[in-house]
Design a protein around this nucleic acid. Structure first.
Length: 227
DNA sequence: ATCAAGATTACCT
DNA sequence: GGTAATCTTGATA
C-alpha cells in the first residue's frame, strides 16, 4: 500500500528523486530551501504522547514542514564536518551516496537530522536547522510539549532549531539511515527560490572552520532559528 | 578505562 | 546575554 501524501496545501507535490541528492552539497543545500519535508506516522492515539502501530481503519497521519534554514557540511575541506577525520560507526551513513538521513545525538539531549548529499565516499550532508510547520501541527505540539499549543509564541518555537524540529517530527536514532526516496520520510519538490529571498551567513554553534559561508535561510521567515 | 567535547536548548538575570 | 544540563562518541592510554 502506498503512503504517498497529498496535503491540501500542495498543488502538485512530487517526491524528490535520488538524482536531486547526489549533487554537490552546496547546490543541494540552497535548493532544499522552500521544499517540504514529510514524515509519515502510524498513529492510534495521541494520549500519553505515544505513537503505536495501527491496527484498524484510518490510522495514517503525517507531519510536514517547509524547510527554511539549512547548513552545508563537507568532510573533505571542512573541519566542522563529522566526516572530516574519516569514517566511524557514527558517521558511516554520511559517506553513502546522497538521499539518506544522517541522525546524530548531541549534548546528551538532542537529535539533529541531516540530508546526505553527493557521491558515495564524499562525506557531505545538509543539516536541517529549521522548518515552518504545515501539516500535523497538533501532533507536533504533543511531541514537543506533551499538550496542545497555548499561543503563537509556542507555535514559532515548535521547529525553529535543529533539535526542536527533530523533537516535533519525532525523528530519533530509529531514523538513522532512512532512505529519503522511500515512503517513511521524504521531501516534496517545490520551485527553486529566487536568490534575493535567500540569506547566506556563517554557520552556527561550531568551533572550527567557522568562517565558511555555508548557512542558508529564507529571508524574513519567522521560523529561522536566529538572525 | 577514562575523558573531553559537542552541528543545542531551556531557563536564568 | 550567560550558562547548566546531559550522555554519546571518538580519541588516547
Amino acid at each position: 500500500m502506498s503512503n504517498t501524501i497529498v496535503s491540501p496545501l500542495l498543488k502538485h507535490p512530487q517526491k524528490l528523486k535520488r538524482e536531486f541528492y547526489t549533487r554537490p552539497v552546496l547546490s543541494v543545500a540552497k535548493e532544499l530551501l522552500g521544499k517540504i519535508i514529510v514524515k509519515n506516522e502510524v498513529l492510534v492515539s495521541s494520549l500519553e504522547n505515544t505513537l503505536i502501530p495501527a491496527v484498524n481503519d484510518n490510522p495514517f497521519t503525517w507531519l510536514s514542514g517547509k524547510i527554511v534554514e539549512v547548513e552545508a557540511y563537507n568532510g573533505s575541506i571542512d573541519e566542522a564536518a563529522h566526516t572530516f577525520s574519516g569514517m566511524t560507526k557514527r558517521n558511516e551513513i554520511m559517506f553513502s551516496e546522497g538521499g539518506y538521513l544522517y541522525v546524530y545525538f548531541t549534548y546528551g539531549a538532542h537529535f539533529c537530522s541531516n540530508i546526505v548529499t553527493g557521491r558515495k565516499g564524499e562525506g557531505t550532508a545538509v543539516l536541517l536547522r529549521a522548518v515552518e510547520p504545515l501539516d500535523g501541527i497538533n501532533q507536533m505540539a504533543i511531541n514537543r510539549y506533551g499538550r496542545d499549543l497555548k499561543n503563537d509564541k509556542e507555535k514559532l518555537n515548535l521547529t525553529n532549531g535543529p533539535g526542536k524540529l527533530c523533537k516535533a517530527f519525532c525523528i530519533n536514532r530509529n531514523h538513522y539511515g532512512v532512505d529519503l526516496t522511500g515512503d517513511e520520510i521524504f521531501i516534496l519538490d517545490q520551485p527553486v527560490l529566487d536568490k534575493k529571498d535567500i540569506e547566506i551567513t556563517k554557520r552556527i554553534g561550531i568551533t572550527r572552520s567557522v568562517d565558511l559561508p555555508w548557512r542558508f535561510y529564507i529571508k524574513n521567515n519567522p521560523w529561522v532559528s536566529r538572525k
